[in-house]
């Protein structure tokens, strides 16, 4: 029926679009990391040696410090580069997701462009500093 193809819409690659997309993808990413964490933990004898609370803590931040106080006999398999990367990804996703959520709600109330840009810069600094501290903790655990 169409004689001419319709004009392709302009894909948004501005900050609002990218952060909207990041918020959705980071949520899925966090679910994925948590599922990998739980699955791996169960394979590493968590069912016999960990409470559900400890398991959840591990799932949402796979750090060996969250295992040492459980009945897991050997923590060696619970640490390493893979779990460091998973922990760092979870930290970056969670920080970015949460801080952008806060920013998004605050921006509802901000009319002036310079105030919005200032706030965005501030949130970026907070995210970078928090992430740097978190990454340091993860890598030195």
């Amino acid at each position: 029926m169409k004689e001419h193809p319709r004009t392709a819409p302009q894909k948004g690659f501005n900050f609002d679009y990218l952060m909207w997309l990041f918020t959705r993808l980071s949520a899925l990413g966090m679910y994925l990391i948590a599922i990998v964490g739980v699955t791996a933990a169960l394979l590493m004898s968590a069912r016999q040696n960990m409470s559900v609370a400890d398991l959840m803590r591990w799932a949402f931040m796979p750090n060996p410090n969250h295992v040492v106080n459980t009945n897991i006999p050997n923590v060696d398999t619970w640490k390493g580069i893979f779990w460091n990367v998973m922990g760092i990804l979870m930290l970056l996703f969670a920080g970015g997701h949460g801080l952008h959520g806060l920013l998004n709600v605050l921006e509802d109330y901000i009319s002036r462009t310079w105030v919005r840009n200032l706030l965005r810069g501030l949130v970026l600094v907070v995210w970078v500093v928090m992430s740097a501290i978190g990454i340091y903790v993860i890598l030195t655990s």
Binding site: K2, T7, A8, P9, Q10, G12, D16, W20
Partner: peptide
């Protein structure tokens, strides 16, 4: 399907005061 300005409207809604 009869309209040809979807891109134009989407651009407007893609701004900070649009759908986000």
């Amino acid at each position: 399907s009869r309209d040809k300005a979807a891109a134009e409207r989407l651009k407007i809604l893609n701004e900070v005061w649009g759908v986000y």
